[in-house]
């Protein structure tokens, strides 16, 4: 029972990390670091909640989260890819803007409610027969739609990235943009398109927290989870399989911290249990020596002679 609970929570908590980190892998493979990931998560959480609350439809919530991601991505992509401004600086600006904007617009829509507004959670969808399996059944086959989507996206991401021409173009845009250009493909368009797609995924990942997990929206609903996804992309070596493993490890850390906090074990202070994922990231970043960094990561592509 205990193991089953932990496993179920692990898979649940790793869902948004999988989606977000995979998005980061795709976009970083083209040579753009999406520093705005934390802000995009938050906009997705906000839009998912607002869409679902106003229309009463979770589908609309998910679609609004994607839309919010696309808009944030368009802003970030336009400034970094086309105007070639610094990615860390632009991303930080968006990350400062996002919480202000989300809270402000929440106020515009709902005023100051006495109690936090709530929506129903995305329902869990049990897969017939498989969900009855012992131990793993509930964890892997009785989750909400985003969890299934996350696993599907990981598989699709791996396939697209390494087995298709699109994937080749994406990888080359970050490894050798001149070659992509010479082949007659517009590097900026590849990068911009991938930023938008990745941010749409980030929006979904953010919506997981508001309409898939808590059922409400608060200012610190993301609380650095976007950064964890960002880190998983690094630690997973820019590979969807690495993302899968990394997300499950961090999901486990998240699940354990919930268990430890609620179990009344006072050996380790709560504060440090909450900090486990962040400490884990630091240790992993230091321990991991060989990275497969995309060669042009963070460097805007400027055509010669412009």
């Amino acid at each position: 029972m205990f193991i089953e609970n932990i496993l179920t929570n692990t898979v649940m908590m790793s869902t948004p990390l999988m989606i977000g980190a995979l998005a980061e892998v795709l976009v970083e493979r083209t040579g753009v670091m999406n520093i705005a990931i934390e802000g995009t998560f938050l906009m997705g959480a906000w839009a998912g909640f607002v869409g679902a609350y106003i229309t009463g439809s979770l589908t609309v919530g998910l679609l609004s989260a994607v839309l919010a991601g696309v808009l944030t991505g368009a802003l970030y992509g336009y400034i970094t890819v086309y105007l070639k401004q610094h990615q860390i600086v632009t991303g930080t600006a968006i990350n400062i803007l996002a919480p202000g904007l989300a809270l402000y617009l929440y106020r515009v829509f709902f005023g100051i409610p006495l109690l936090p507004l709530q929506v129903e959670l995305l329902p869990t969808i049990p897969i017939p027969f498989l969900s009855d399996l012992p131990v793993v059944g509930r964890a892997f086959f009785n989750q909400n739609i985003l969890t299934y989507a996350a696993f599907a996206l990981i598989a699709a991401g791996f396939w697209v990235l390494f087995k298709t021409r699109t994937g080749l173009v994406i990888r080359s845009a970050g490894a050798n943009p001149e070659a992509v250009d010479a082949a007659g493909i517009n590097v900026e368009r590849v990068r911009f398109g991938t930023v938008i797609f990745a941010c749409a995924m980030d929006g979904l990942a953010g919506a997981f927290y508001s309409i898939g997990f808590l059922g409400l929206f608060t200012e610190n609903i993301i609380g650095g989870r976007g950064w964890i996804a960002f880190a998983i992309c690094f630690l997973g070596n820019w590979n969807p399989i690495g993302v899968l493993v990394g997300s499950l490890v961090f999901g486990l850390a998240d699940a354990l911290s919930v268990v430890i906090r609620t179990s009344g074990v006072t050996m380790v202070p709560n504060e440090f249990v909450i900090a486990i994922p962040y400490i884990l990231t630091i240790v992993a970043t230091i321990a991991r020596r060989r990275f497969n960094v995309p060669a042009y990561l963070g460097i805007p592509y400027v055509k010669e002679g412009r």
Partner: peptide
């Protein structure tokens, strides 16, 4: 006026400064 407007001002000022560099 909600307090979130301060964050919005800071964010928009930063973004327009970045645009001005361009």
């Amino acid at each position: 006026v909600p307090s979130s407007i301060i964050g919005i001002m800071e964010g928009f000022v930063m973004l327009s400064v970045i645009l001005s560099f361009y």
